[in-house]
């Protein structure tokens, strides 16, 4: 079965850098940013293009700042 391809968009400004999404991600797609947001948090961001759109990160995110996308079926490689 072809691997599902996905991506996440994180509202980094509202991310509190708790790291729960990073811990929950099964593909190590997410990591802490080097920069900090205006509230002083090292936010979460995609660090590699391995997302499988499993939504795990969004499910555990207490601040509901993650949006998850999945490649349309017919476009899947």
């Amino acid at each position: 079965m072809a691997k599902v391809k996905g991506a996440v968009v994180i509202n980094t400004e509202n991310c509190k850098g708790c790291g729960l999404c990073i811990y929950a991600c099964p593909t190590d797609t997410l990591g802490f940013s080097k920069e900090i947001n205006s509230k002083g948090f090292n936010y979460s961001e995609m660090v590699q293009d391995e997302c499988i759109a499993c939504v795990s990160c969004a499910l555990v995110c207490p601040d509901a700042v993650i949006t998850v996308y999945r490649m349309k079926k017919d476009k899947a490689v």
């Binding site: 996905g6 991506a7 968009v9 990591g31 940013s33 080097k34 920069e35 961001e45 995609m46 660090v47 590699q48 293009d49 997302c51 759109a53 939504v55 969004a58 509901a64 700042v65 993650i66 949006t67 998850v68 996308y69 999945r70 490649m71 349309k72 476009k75």
Partner: peptide, 18 residues
């Protein structure tokens, strides 16, 4: 810096509830 992935041809499957 994190990576940027194109969202072209992608469906939104989860977002913050309205």
């Amino acid at each position: 810096m994190g990576i940027t992935v194109s969202l072209e041809n992608m469906d939104k499957i989860y977002e913050r509830p309205k």
